[in-house]
């Protein structure tokens, strides 16, 4: 029951849907400790992705689809999240390679590569109150689920659940990267918008796998 192109495109479609649905929520999180554009940025990006998705050739691999997301986000999102998430998808595509089907180990490798890409570009550490605080718990949970012999869907569910907890756990933190870092103590009590959106994207991956 490995994951192929259908899962990948389902994931992308579901991502676009949840980003649109949570656009205002993400804007409001960003208004509180940033500049109020995060929901708009991602919505613009995933809308552009959706417009290109049907151009994928019928024999496209998961890697092809992820690369399409990467280049589209990089060229339409802007801001901090555009290059960061773009790089994540780009590295994920690299990890997926030319495979048609991804097993549990490949899924974990994909998530790990994505997270490493964000760190490579943004240099954030855990606890800096960024999207990394969703991604790193997700990667760890996915690895643990793989080690425990779980299915791909279960691995992604574990990742999403950990990301959600990670996003919530950004609330008490002081930020050390991104715009929220200018706020010092005043960022405390607010959830990081990028961590929140990343948890939504990972939940979308899990939901797409459930259907698969």
């Amino acid at each position: 029951m490995s994951l192929g192109i259908t899962w990948t495109t389902d994931w992308i479609r579901e991502s676009a849907r949840v980003v649109a649905e949570h656009r205002v929520e993400l804007i409001n999180l960003d208004r509180a400790i940033g500049d109020g554009d995060h929901g708009e940025n991602l919505d613009r990006g995933y809308t552009a992705v959706m417009a290109k998705l049907d151009d994928l050739p019928p024999d496209a691999t998961p890697g092809d689809a992820l690369k399409l997301v990467a280049t589209t986000l990089i060229s339409t999102v802007g801001g901090a999240s555009g290059p960061l998430l773009g790089t994540a998808y780009l590295k994920a595509a690299g990890a997926a390679g030319a495979e048609k089907e991804l097993d549990g180990a490949a899924v974990v490798a994909l998530l790990t590569a994505a997270r490493d890409g964000i760190v490579l570009r943004g240099k954030a550490e855990s606890g800096d109150k960024t999207m990394i605080d969703a991604w790193t718990p997700a990667v760890d949970a996915a690895a643990a689920a793989l080690a425990a012999g779980k299915t791909e869907a279960e691995i992604l569910d574990a990742a999403a659940t950990a990301a959600e907890a990670g996003a919530v756990a950004t609330e008490p933190l002081v930020a050390r990267k991104g715009r929220a870092s200018y706020l010092g103590e005043r960022a405390i009590g607010h959830r990081d918008p990028g961590a929140q959106s990343s948890s939504l994207l990972l939940r979308a991956a899990a939901d797409a796998a459930k259907g698969a």
């Binding site: 708009e40 060229s75 802007g78 801001g79």
Partner: peptide, 10 residues
Amino acid sequence: GAVFTSPTPD
């Protein structure tokens, strides 16, 4: 870029 958003690389 978009309002208050960095332009993209292109």
